[in-house]
């Protein structure tokens, strides 16, 4: 079996980094989307949801332009580090974060807004600041949504192809992810290798999702917050 372990490791690394960063920036963003009363909030919501409908190549193309040496951002990065963002692992991370943003933010926001607003009122009358209310009430009661968001972001990053191809290219050990590797194998009529890698990816993703949904399952008598840390 000629599984490309290097590509596999790279893909998992990318998915872990991206879902960790998405967790960190997704929480405040989802909080803002849920609780803000700004009248133009819907514009931000639409912007966040854009990658769901946009072809990855469109996003990848604009990212390539934005990260390349002709754009101000690309030039600034190049002057700081000596190389461009495009065709690097960092560039891949930036692209993947944007591409997977709605898959983390939307479940987060949905679970925040499903917390009974009376609990928030009760928390405030007991002297808690919005910040404390968020960490003591909203977050613990949103654990299933948080898990779902992180897992979806992880899985979505694992399987992405278009964005990676556009801004990452195909550099072994740097930007060649599993999906690119499979595509290459098929192009080279190397079906056995493609099958081995594809099967491994399939089993891995299924195992992760099974584990998460299994732990996160809701039954009428079993409250969902029992899996999450409370304090």
């Amino acid at each position: 079996m000629s599984i490309n372990w290097q590509a596999f490791r790279l893909t998992i690394e990318l998915a872990v980094v991206v879902s960790a960063i998405l967790f960190a920036i997704g929480l405040p963003l989802a909080y803002w989307i849920t609780f803000s009363r700004w009248r133009w909030k819907f514009l931000v919501e639409a912007l966040v949801a854009l990658p769901i409908v946009l072809p990855p190549t469109v996003l990848g193309f604009y990212l390539l332009v934005a990260l390349g040496s002709r754009s101000p951002l690309g030039r600034w990065w190049q002057s700081m580090t000596g190389h461009t963002l495009a065709f690097t692992f960092t560039g891949l991370v930036i692209g993947s974060i944007l591409y997977s943003l709605p898959f983390a933010v939307q479940p987060f926001a949905a679970s925040f807004s499903s917390v009974d607003c009376k609990l928030l009122a009760a928390s405030a009358t007991l002297g808690a600041s919005p910040f404390r209310t968020f960490f003591r009430v909203v977050l613990p009661l949103s654990v299933p949504g948080l898990v779902t968001g992180v897992v979806l972001a992880f899985a979505h990053t694992m399987g992405e192809f278009g964005v990676v191809l556009m801004i990452g290219g195909n550099i072994p050990g740097v930007t060649r992810t599993v999906s690119i590797d499979i595509y290459d194998q098929v192009q080279a009529s190397n079906y056995a290798a493609a099958n081995a890698t594809a099967l491994l990816l399939l089993v891995f993703c299924f195992a992760v999702l099974t584990a998460v949904y299994g732990l996160n399952r809701r039954t009428p008598n079993q409250r969902s917050w029992t899996i999450g840390p409370v304090k």
Partner: peptide, 17 residues
């Protein structure tokens, strides 16, 4: 949060977790 008013809401709003 700073009023110091105790309020028992209609459906109590105990923190379930």
């Amino acid at each position: 949060a700073k009023r110091g008013v105790g309020y028992v809401l209609q459906d109590l709003a105990l923190f379930p977790h």
